[in-house]
Lab assay of single mutants.
Amino acid sequence: MSIQHFRVALIPFFAAFCLPVFAHPETLVKVKDAEDQLGARVGYIELDLNSGKILESFRPEERFPMMSTFKVLLCGAVLSRVDAGQEQLGRRIHYSQNDLVEYSPVTEKHLTDGMTVRELCSAAITMSDNTAANLLLTTIGGPKELTAFLHNMGDHVTRLDRWEPELNEAIPNDERDTTMPAAMATTLRKLLTGELLTLASRQQLIDWMEADKVAGPLLRSALPAGWFIADKSGAGERGSRGIIAALGPDGKPSRIVVIYTTGSQATMDERNRQIAEIGASLIKHW
């Protein structure tokens, strides 16, 4: 067993022997301040990774656009098919120029040779490549099948209805392509620590998230040296922004954090800054 596999296998073990965790309302004060600064709703939840206990939450059962955070769930569904012998990570998928959609920095470079399922998941999570996500959605049967996968996990809230990039439209009061912070946090925890996926697939999923290259201005910008984070960000229309993450000190994750916002007129930089400040408060009061 590799060191990384050992780390993920012992996530519940280490967490069980940690000192009790206590909620700190100071972080919620910052979440509410972010709402004021952005002029928009902000949803927040913080779960203990081992027990699933909610440590703090704000608007945990209000719907927010998922945006690209759905790509972690998508690759979880792909990995479940791999575990069941219905898919192979090494299978190569070929596609054409007509398949390319807006923001496809990886797939646009491989029109000639195609990409493997493993490479597509890596591109979808680490670079948020939209064509990679659409190609992977095709392998599982489309958005409705991802929703069905989530329902089978016990998540009857999260739903995907459309493809990239239309799913980022974020129309107010439109339930399409949305989740709730509580539902997303619980589902992410199941994917990373539950028995739904094999140990190898859980490790692969967290490795992809740990290698995320496009979430630097968010929670990662607030992390002290030595902290662990595996995350996936999302951005959408109407001032929408979000991030889902597993993080913790001492090089291992111990909490799940989900943050979503929508309806702001603020710039992307300002949305990023507010999420980073929430992260800084979380870490300060850990």
Rank of each mutant, 00 (worst) to 15 (best):
T138N: 15
V42D: 00
L196K: 08
K144E: 08
P60D: 14
E145F: 08
V106S: 12
D99F: 08
T69I: 08
I244Q: 00
A133R: 01
S57R: 10
M115C: 10
Q37T: 05
K284C: 12
K109M: 10
Y44E: 02
T107E: 01
R162S: 09
T198R: 11
A225T: 06
A235Y: 03
A215E: 15
A77G: 05
I256P: 01
E35L: 02
L191Q: 06
N50E: 06
S221T: 09
M184F: 08
D231F: 05
A84F: 14
E164C: 01
H285A: 10
V42L: 06
A215C: 13
S221Y: 05
L191K: 02
Q204K: 07
T116H: 12
H110R: 13
P60H: 06
L192V: 09
T131F: 08
E270H: 03
L150H: 07
P249K: 13
G263C: 11
N152G: 09
A222Q: 08
Y44S: 01
Q274T: 07
Y95V: 04
A183Q: 13
E102S: 09
R271E: 14
K284I: 15
A215W: 03
P249V: 07
K32S: 06
Y103C: 09
H110I: 04
L150Y: 13
D269I: 05
M67Q: 07
G242W: 00
D207N: 10
M66P: 01
R176M: 05
M184Y: 11
G279D: 01
S51V: 08
L73S: 13
T262Q: 04
S221K: 03
S80F: 13
I125M: 05
L100W: 08
M180T: 11
S254R: 12
L47S: 10
N152F: 10
Q265E: 06
I243P: 00
Q265R: 08
E210R: 10
G251W: 10
A77R: 04
A170H: 14
L160T: 15
L111Y: 13
R92D: 15
V78P: 00
L223M: 15
P25M: 14
V31A: 08
A185F: 00
L47Q: 11
M180E: 14
F228R: 14
G194R: 15
E169Q: 09
W286Q: 03
G43E: 00
A276G: 11
H110E: 09
T27K: 15
I54D: 10
I278S: 00
V257I: 14
I125S: 03
I206H: 04
F70P: 01
L28Q: 09
V257N: 02
N152D: 11
A40K: 05
I244H: 00
K71S: 00
P253E: 05
D269Y: 06
S51G: 05
G263S: 13
K30C: 07
I275D: 00
D48L: 03
G236R: 01
V82T: 12
S122C: 07
C121T: 03
N168D: 07
F64W: 03
T112P: 14
W286V: 03
V106W: 15
H151F: 03
G251S: 12
F228V: 14
M268A: 12
H285L: 10
E26T: 15
K232G: 01
I45Q: 09
T186V: 12
M184R: 00
I93L: 10
P217Y: 13
T261M: 12
L218Q: 03
L192G: 03
L38P: 06
G216C: 09
V101F: 06
G76C: 09
N130A: 03
P249A: 08
Y103G: 08
K252M: 12
M268E: 10
L38A: 09
R255D: 00
Y44G: 02
L111T: 06
T179F: 01
A211R: 15
M153Q: 06
R162Q: 15
P224W: 03
R59S: 11
C121N: 02
E119K: 14
L111P: 12
L218G: 05
Y103E: 06
V82H: 07
A276L: 11
Y260P: 01
I45N: 03
D129N: 01
L196T: 11
T126Y: 05
G236V: 02
E169N: 06
A185L: 02
A280T: 15
D83Q: 13
G239H: 15
G52L: 09
L247H: 01
A211K: 15
G236T: 09
F228G: 13
D207M: 07
D129E: 02
H285N: 10
L120I: 08
A182I: 08
L136T: 07
I244A: 10
V106N: 06
A222N: 05
S233H: 01
L218T: 07
A211S: 11
P253T: 07
Q265W: 11
N130R: 01
G85Q: 12
K109N: 15
I229Y: 15
D113F: 05
I283Q: 07
G39F: 09
H151K: 04
I244R: 00
Y103I: 06
L74D: 01
G242H: 02
Y95A: 08
R238E: 06
S104F: 03
L282Y: 04
E195A: 14
H94F: 05
I259V: 10
A124R: 01
G76K: 00
L136A: 10
T158S: 10
Q37I: 09
R273F: 08
M153F: 04
I244M: 07
M115Q: 11
L146Y: 04
L146D: 01
A124C: 13
V72T: 08
A200G: 12
Q203V: 05
L167Y: 01
G194K: 15
A230K: 00
M153L: 04
L205M: 04
Q37N: 05
Q203R: 04
G141L: 10
L192H: 12
M67V: 14
A40G: 07
K232F: 00
Q88A: 08
S80T: 09
R176C: 15
R81A: 08
N50Y: 05
F58C: 12
Y95M: 12
A133S: 10
Q97Y: 09
R241F: 03
E237Q: 14
D231I: 12
T198M: 10
A170N: 10
L135V: 12
N168T: 07
F70Q: 13
G234K: 00
D36A: 15
G263Q: 07
R92I: 14
Q265M: 09
E61M: 14
V106A: 15
A124G: 12
L282E: 13
V82K: 06
S233N: 01
W227T: 02
V101H: 04
S51A: 08
P224A: 06
R118N: 15
Q204N: 15
S68K: 00
S96L: 12
D99R: 09
E164W: 00
R162E: 13
I259E: 00
S264T: 05
A34K: 05
E35R: 13
R159Y: 07
A182L: 14
Q88K: 13
K232Y: 00
I256C: 04
A185Y: 01
E35W: 02
M66I: 09
R92F: 10
N134L: 02
N130G: 09
M184Q: 05
T178Y: 02
D36T: 15
P105F: 13
E35I: 12
L74G: 03
G234P: 00
L150R: 00
K252Q: 05
T267D: 09
P165Q: 06
N173M: 10
T107W: 01
E169S: 06
F228C: 10
R241G: 08
I278G: 01
T262V: 06
L137F: 12
H285Q: 15
E62G: 09
K232D: 00
S254W: 07
E26D: 14
A132T: 02
V72L: 11
G239M: 02
